[in-house]
Design a protein around this nucleic acid. Structure first.
Lengths: 343, 343
DNA sequence: ATAATAGGGACATAATAAGTCCCTTGGAGG
DNA sequence: CCTCCAAGGGACTTATTATGTCCCTATTAT
C-alpha cells in the first residue's frame, strides 16, 4: 500500500494533500454532525468559502447529506471515512511524528520519510530525495552550498536534479577528505551534486593529518584559501550524521583511535566532529574547512540521516549546535521518540 | 490496493485523472526519449502549453531530465513509471474494457466498476453508486424517470443522493408489481429513489394476472391512467437485468411457468420481458406500464447489471432493443468479452 | 415572538491555467 | 563552413477557476 502513496506523492503531491483535506472535513462532520457551515469553519480553521466548496463537492459525490438542520455523513461517506483511515494515518503519521520530533529535539523543521533507510534501499532513496528537494527549495541564486561526506550524502547527491537556480550555485565540501572511500568523500560529493544539479563546484585538497607547519603553508595558497573563504561564507550546509558503530567499521584509523572514541563514549560524527551522547565534542578531525564556530553564520543547516541505529547520534547532535532542519526516516524518528536521550 | 484507488476515485476523482495524465506523459517520454516538446504534443494529442506545464512539473519533481537534445527520464522517473504501472493498469483497465464492450455490444456508453457484484457487497455498492451518479448526471428539470424492480435497482435507489434538480423530478415504476418481494418491487424502488434524492414519485397499483376486462376498467381510472401517461413520457429509464437462474429461484410463479421459460431457453428478464440468448422475447408479464414499443421515445435508457452469471443476459438484451448506456462490473464485462454470445 | 443558526445565492476579485507567438541555441547535413 | 531544423525557454494575453465578501430566507429552540 505504501508504494501507491509514495508514488503518488512524487507524481501528484497535491492529490494527497487534497485527499487529506477532504478526509479531515469528512471526519469533522462525522464527529459534529449535524453541523453547520460556520461551526465547521471555525473548527477546521478554514475560510468559509473554501469549506463551502469542499462541502459542495462532497455532496456532489454523495458523501455528505446537507439539510436544513446541518450536514451529516451519508452511509457512503461513513464507509469512505472508515476505509480511508488507515491510509490517511499512514500518510500523516509522519507529519504527527515530525511535530513530536520538532518539540523533542527543539528543531525548526523536520521531514520524515517512510521506512527504514538502513535496511531498505527504497527508503534510503526516499530520504535522499527529500534531502535533495529541500536543498532545491532553499537555495537561491549565487549562494554557496557546503556539503559533508558519507554514504547518505552520496545518495542525496545522486538524487539532485537540475533547476535554473542551480546554474548559479556553487557546491563546496564542508571539510577536506576524512579518509573515507573516494565516493564518500565530501569533495567527490560536492562534484556529483554540481554535476547532477547543473551547478558549479570547488574542491578542497588538504590532506588529513599533516603537520601544523604544512597546514599553515597550504592554507596560504590562493587556490585553497579561496575555497576556504567560500566555505566559511556558505549559505547552506548539508551534512549527515554517522553513528559510532558504523564509524568504527569504516574509518581507516588505527586501534588507538577507536579506543579513544570508545573511552570518551562517542556516539556520532558529523563533518569531522565526534561527539558523545551529551553533545560534547570528544574529538575533531584535523583537516581544513568549516569549523563549529562558523556554523552560526550559515543560513540553513540541513541534516540528513536515517535508520534506527543513528537515533542516538541524531538526538545527540542537537546538543552540539542548534539544528534547524532534519530530514530523517520513520525508523529513526520512532526510535528517538521511544527513548529518553538526554537533552 | 484496489481499496485506495476506489476511495480516491470517490474523494478526489479529478486528481486520479491528473495522475493518469502524468503517467501517460512519463511513459511516452520513456518510449521516445530523447524527445522534443513538439513531437510529444502530437504524439499525446495534447496542446503544447498543457504538455509544457506537465513537463515542467515532472522536471521539478526530478522525474524527467530536460536538456538541449530533448527530454529523458531520470532514474527516479523510470522507477516511478515501473512501480506505478500495475496501479494505472488497474485504474484504467476498466476504461479499456469499456471500449471493447462498447464495440462488442454496440452500446454508446459503458461504465465498469471493479470487482464482482455477485459475490462482493462492496462491488455491488460501487455498481449502484455508478448507476445513481449516472442518473444524476442525466436528469434535467421536470423530467420523469421510470425505474424497474430488482435487488440491483434497490441498491441504486439507496445510493441516490439529493441534488437540486431532483426536486423537480418524478420517479415512476416502469411497470406494475411483478410479484417479487416488496422491497424489490418497482413501486417501492421508485418511492425510495424519490425519498433519497429529494424528488417526487407516483405509484402504479395494477395487480398482475388480472382479467382483460378488469385491466381495461382499471386503466380508465384517472389515478392509474395519469401514471400510465407519465410512464410513457418518461425521459429516462433505469432498469436492471435478471438472469434465468436467479429468476427461477425467486419468482413465485408455478412450475409450468418455469418449464415454459426453460423450453423457450429464456436467459434473462428486464421489466417484465423474458428473452432468450438471441434476444427474442419469449414471454411478457401481463401488467401495465412501459411497453417495448414505447422504448424508442425514451431519451435515455440506463441498464445496471453486474456479476458473471448475468453476462449472457446482458449480452442478449442488446439484441432485444438498442441500448445506449450500460453500467456493469468487471466480472460481467470480462465474461461477456471472453465468450462468443450471438449478436 | 424572536434570536440564533442553518444553507444558499450573487457578485467582485484574485489566482492560476491555458493559448499564442517568438527567440536563441546546438547539432546534423549539405 | 554554412544553413536549416528542431530543441527548450521566455513573455504576454486571455480564459477559467477558486476564493473572498455580503446578504437573504427558512427553520428551530427558547
Amino acid at each position: 500500500m505504501r508504494t501507491l502513496l509514495t508514488l503518488q506523492s512524487q507524481l501528484c503531491p497535491d492529490l494527497l494533500s487534497v485527499m487529506h483535506k477532504r478526509y479531515t472535513v469528512l471526519r469533522r462532520i462525522y464527529y459534529l454532525q449535524p453541523v453547520g457551515r460556520r461551526s465547521l469553519t471555525s473548527s477546521l480553521q478554514m475560510t468559509e468559502r473554501i469549506l463551502r466548496s469542499e462541502v459542495d463537492f462532497l455532496r456532489e459525490q454523495g458523501l455528505v447529506n446537507i439539510a436544513q438542520a446541518g450536514m451529516t455523513l451519508t452511509e457512503q461517506g461513513l464507509e469512505v471515512l472508515q476505509k480511508l483511515q488507515p491510509f490517511i494515518e499512514e500518510y500523516l503519521g509522519y507529519s504527527q511524528l515530525s511535530e513530536e520530533l520538532k518539540e523533542r529535539l527543539n528543531i525548526q523543521e523536520v521531514w520524515i520519510v517512510p521506512g527504514d533507510s538502513e535496511h531498505d534501499e527504497w527508503a534510503k532513496k526516499e530520504l535522499a530525495r527529500a534531502g535533495a528537494q529541500l536543498i532545491k527549495s532553499w537555495v537561491q541564486e549565487d549562494q554557496v552550498v557546503a556539503v559533508a561526506g558519507g554514504s547518505t550524502m552520496q545518495a542525496v547527491a545522486e538524487s539532485m536534479s537540475p533547476t535554473p537556480i542551480f546554474k548559479r550555485t556553487t557546491f563546496v565540501p564542508a571539510r577536506g577528505g576524512v579518509g573515507d572511500a573516494v565516493e564518500h568523500e565530501a569533495n567527490y560529493i560536492a562534484s556529483r551534486m554540481a554535476k547532477n544539479s547543473g551547478g558549479r563546484y570547488r574542491m578542497l585538497h588538504v590532506p588529513d593529518q599533516i603537520s601544523e607547519e604544512a597546514y599553515q603553508l597550504l592554507t596560504q595558497e590562493t587556490q585553497i584559501s579561496d575555497v576556504l573563504h567560500m566555505i566559511q561564507e556558505a549559505s547552506v550546509l548539508v551534512y549527515s550524521i554517522g553513528d559510532a558503530k558504523t564509524m568504527a567499521g569504516r574509518r581507516k584509523y588505527g586501534r588507538e583511535f577507536m579506543q579513544l572514541l570508545e573511552e570518551k563514549q562517542a556516539v556520532g560524527e558529523s563533518f569531522g566532529y565526534y561527539f558523545d551522547r551529551n553533545g560534547t565534542i570528544v574529538h575533531r578531525t584535523k583537516t581544513a574547512g568549516l569549523r563549529l564556530r562558523d556554523l552560526p553564520k550559515v543560513g540553513r543547516k540541513i541534516a540528513v540521516a536515517g535508520g534506527a541505529s543513528k537515533a542516538e547520534a541524531i538526538a545527540a547532535i542537537c546538543s552540539v549546535f542548534p539544528q534547524d532542519t532534519l530530514v530523517t526516516d520513520e525508523a529513526a524518528a520512532r526510535k528517538i521518540l521511544s527513548q529518553n536521550y538526554p537533552l
